[in-house]
Each structure stands twice: as C-alpha cells, then as structure tokens.
Design a protein around this nucleic acid. Structure first.
Lengths: 330, 330
DNA sequence: CTGAAAGCGCTAACAG
DNA sequence: CTGTTAGCGCTTTCAG
C-alpha cells in the first residue's frame, strides 16, 4: 500500500499524489480531491521512514525525564503530549532513572529519531549538554545554559516565600534539604533560601545532596534532627513526605515539633497526612511552553534559531505541615 | 556524516562497512575493526530512517497507556523501558487520556513508526482492537482477546481474597465500586467478587461505571452510602482514596464505620491515611513480560506468530483501611 | 498545474 | 570474505 497505488488509483503520477498529500496548494483542487479520495479508499498510510529519509524531518519530539514515577513529571508529560499532538507532532518519552550515563545515552539514541529534544531537569554537566545541544534543537526545563532555550520555573521566588512563611510563623532556625547533585532547581533554592533567611535574620542549615525520592527524605531524617532546626524546606514533595515518615518513626510530630515544606505540589503531598505545605510548580504550563519553544525553533528557517527563555511563576500552598514552633523548645 | 564517509575512511566499500556495523560475523575481524575504528573516529551515527526504510524494522516499540498520571502506570512503564533497552529496543510511550478516540488515533499514528505495540488496559472494543492487531504485532496487558498475546494480572484471585478478607472480619454486606466501561479488570473483579460473595453467603452490591480517578471515588460516595454496605472494594487505589475522602467529608469513619479496599498498591494508597488495604498488582513484571512477548513475536520468523498468554499473580496487602464492622450498626 | 527523474542513507541479494 | 548493483517509499527539483 504505497503512494504508487494511490497515484494509480487516482490516475495521476506519483509526484502529483505526493503533492496532493502534502503541499496541497500546488495542485488543482479537483485532482487533489481525487487523490485524497483514492488514499482514503485504499486506507493509505504514508511510510514515515521514507518520508523522514527524504525530508530529514520526523515530526517526532523527544522528552527526557529523570523518573516517570516521580509525580512531578506526569502532568508535564501529559500536557506536552496533548499540546504536541495538536501541533502535529508526536512525543516520545524516555526515563533516565536518575542515571547520568543513561541520560547521555538516551539523548544520543533519541536524537536520531526526533527533530528536537526537551530535557527536563537534566543532571548532566553544562558542557556535555551544550555539546549535545549543538547537534539538534534542545529545550531545557529547569536548567539554564547559555545558548540553549529554556523553560524555567521560578523556584527561587517560591523558596523565598517558604522561608518567609516559616519566619512569619516564628521559626528562627531552618534547614534546607537539597536535591541531587547537578540539579539546577536545588541550586536555585539554596541561593534564594539563603538570601531570604539572612534577610530575615534567621539561621539556615543546608543539607545534602539527597536522592529526590521518599527514600532520600527518610535517609535525611537524622541529619535534619541533628541541626536542631524547627522548620525544614525539602527539595520536593517526595523528600518531604519521606522526611515526615522518618520523623514520625522517631516520634517527632509534624507540624507540632517540626514544620515541613515540600516543592512541586503533587498528589503525594496532597494525600500525605498532615497534608503538605508546598511550593506549587507550574508543570503543565511548562510542558506546553517547552513544546511551543521547540516547535518554534524547528519551524523557523534560521540556521541557528534564537534561544528563547520563558520563566513561569510558582506559589506557596499552605496546608497542614507548617505551624508556629513549639514554645517550650528551641 | 554517512556510512559512505566511514567506508572511505576505512578504505572499504559501503556494503562492507554496512556489514561490519550490523551483521558483524560476515566480515573479516581485521576489516571490521578498521571500520568500527573509523566510525568511532568520525562519530558516525546511522540514520535510523534510512535503516528502517530498507529493513522495514525500526527497533522501536509503542506503549499505550490510558493515563500516565495514574500511579499504576509509571512502574510498568519504567520496567518496560529499562528491559527493552537491554534488548536493544526503544520504547515510545503515549497517553490516551482515557479517551477511546484518542486511543485509536494514537495506535494508528504510532503503528507507522514502531515494530509492535503494547496496549495497557485498552478501552476500545474487542473487534476494533482485533482489527488493528491484524496490522502489526500487539501485546495486550489486562485485556483478553482471542488471537492476541496478552499479559494478564490475576485480579480475579485478588478480588476473591478481598471479599474473603472482609467476610472474615465479619462484614455481611459489601459494595463493589467498578471502573470505566470497557475495562477488562473491572469485569474480572465483578465476576470474581460476585462468586466469592455468594460462596461466603454475603450480599454484594455492584456500582458503576466510574472514572478510574480520585474524582471518580468522590463521586461514588453517595451511592456507596445508599447501599448500606460496611465493606467496599474499589476499582483501584485512586478511586479508593477518593471514596475515603468523600466519606471523610460526610463524617463517616474508615475503617470504623466502613472498610475500604483498593487495587494496584500504588504510592497513593501507601500515603493515604488510613493507609490503604489493597490488592497488589505486579506492574513491573507485567511491563517486562509484555516487552518479552512482543520481542519474541517480532523476532520469530513465523508469519503469524503464536499468541502467548502470561498470567501474573496478585496478592492482598492488609493495612489500616479495613477492620471488623461496627457492632452497633448494620 | 502535472509528469519525469533523481536521490535521501542504508541494506541485501548476487557475483566473484 | 568483499565489491557491485538495485531499490526500500517518498519528496523535490526540473521541465514542460
């Protein structure tokens, strides 16, 4: 079932059929209708490989995330896929499992079958990403590298809000449980929380790096307690939930003894008891924006597409895991 | 940077280079090393489109799920991707958003760029799936259609365990909150729970269909209460969590007044308070098995590959959302 | 507006 | 074991 069959059925040459099927304006309406009808009739489906071979474009986009099982990603993935489909592109999702080597390998593999790649919270070093980015269009999410387009979530603002929230409740000693090495988000939080704490004249201990998972949070428990902090900001909701679990095991009450704040605003935080106070991240908009930036770069005729940067705001969602510090303690 | 450049650099003909790069046994070791070295040196990456065009095979597999944001899927996806990579295949994941039309469209689109497709919990009708399955290799997960390979989770067994668990606690009146129309899992549960209940001599009211989400659970609350049942088995963890939320709003205690059981054993159930009693589904093994079945079908020379069927067992995880019924009530 | 012809990069017979 | 040749299905010049 090739374009040849369609052309024959419609009584035209292959090239005419091709034109009718793609650059429809270059062919007489009447002929085009005939071709389209024949194609429909025969159930013709273009061979994407052949098409990609001649055009050099696949109309596929790659989306690389570190861990599909982290509830931060699914909303972003869903939004990206849905929006890409509307724009006539297909999105291929791959999971690096938080492994830098897998990440690089995956980019290489994917790069051969897509027109462009979206890298969400990559862990690779700037220079490796920049090098790979030279080979095909990239859009980064939550990572900033000169020369590459990016969608950023203003987590710095969120972190400052979190510090202020805790300071406002009366906490004078905070801890920041950082994420994995190589995380831009973590670095942003660290910087912004540090500044906000010193502005507020309170102490902030910085802990980490930690795995961005429940396990990571549980593992950080002892260190958190050692600091003596009464308010803790965690790298993400999973870490926060894990920490609360760890504290619970040691009979430390949240928020009674220690207040805990997460980042992302995922189901995990909503379902947790106490319900988690968290910094909400605009994941779905970020997914759409990333697709938009990427397609823009792809469809602009420029050889070196302008790098665009888009920053989305975050906000603080106050729930039940934060409260004034216990008067008797500290 | 084509295979031509590599051949030239290695001082051999294109076809020799091609052989060295693929069917390595057909070429003298020495020549092969020279070709491989040249390829490495030049950073040669085969053009997958060209390769796919000649061979007719892409080494890509499609994995279609109804909702990436449902925590049931990520472990399955992760396991499938990781295992496929080991076997030299790439997995493309797509999300249908629980929409039957999108599901069909996605299968069609994906079908053109992959060698085979895994359909997890499809909602399409048997005949539509069977028709599409005629066009390329399919493996179903949690769906049984004659002539197609499938990986099944023995949720019937799990449902029976759940009924027995509740009966053993002393509940004499149960409700089953079903899932969406077209769900094989839901049908299995209904049948098995019905049988187990009648065997145990207790009443079982069947409710639904419902959306397989927290919202679906919340929406089912009133109907559940209307039955007067003291034990409820839900289509999945999300529905169970939603139901518990709905009951909580109406000041109905779980498990004090009503016991609730979910299905899947996802984070959602673990994080929920009370922690959810649930039927654990073997999601990761199912992902691997599905990939295995699919690759097997792909690599067997048979024109019509034998349909294989693999059933994985489920188990009941008892946590805090089930207890004996309130003595004073019912 | 349409037909003819070339070629995308690669693999796969077919000879030698 | 290696070189030659053809061609996968499609788009895209180039003529007409």
């Amino acid at each position: 079932m090739t374009i040849r069959d369609v052309a024959q059925a419609a009584g035209v040459h292959v090239s005419t059929a091709s034109r009718a099927l793609t650059a429809s304006s270059l062919v007489k309406k009447e002929t085009r209708d005939r071709v389209l009808a024949a194609a429909e009739e025969l159930g013709y489906r273009p061979n994407e490989s052949a098409r990609a071979l001649t055009t050099g474009r696949t109309r596929n986009l790659g989306l690389i995330v570190s861990d599909i099982a982290n509830p931060f990603f699914p909303p972003l993935i869903k939004a990206a896929q849905a929006y890409a489909r509307v724009r006539g592109y297909q999105v291929f999702v791959a999971d690096t499992d938080e492994d830098v080597r897998v990440e690089e390998e995956l980019i290489q593999t994917l790069a051969r079958q897509v027109d462009g790649v979206i890298l969400v919270s990559p862990r690779l070093s700037d220079d490796v990403i920049a090098r790979l980015g030279g080979e095909l269009p990239f859009v980064l999410v939550n990572r900033q590298i000169t020369g590459l387009s990016a969608v950023l979530m203003d987590v710095a603002h969120g972190a400052a809000l979190a510090v202020d929230h805790l300071a406002g409740l009366g906490h004078g000693h905070l801890a920041l449980v950082c994420g994995p090495r190589g995380s831009w988000t973590s670095a942003q939080m660290r910087r912004a929380a540090g500044k906000a704490a010193s502005d507020a004249g309170i102490r902030l201990d910085v802990l980490g790096p930690n795995a961005p998972t429940e396990q990571g949070g549980i593992a950080a428990t002892a260190e958190v307690l050692r600091t003596g902090a009464t308010g803790v900001i965690c790298y993400n909701d999973l870490v926060a939930v894990g920490l609360i679990e760890g504290l619970d095991e040691r009979r430390v009450r949240v928020p009674g003894d220690i207040s805990v704040i997460g980042v992302d605003d995922t189901v995990a935080g909503r379902l947790n008891r106490p319900r988690l106070t968290t910094i909400a991240m605009p994941t779905a908009p970020a997914g759409r924006t990333a697709i938009d930036l990427l397609i823009q770069a792809l469809e602009s005729a420029e050889p070196a597409p302008a790098t665009a940067q888009s920053t989305l705001t975050t906000s603080l969602v106050v729930r039940d895991s934060t409260a004034p510090p216990d008067q008797s303690a500290d």
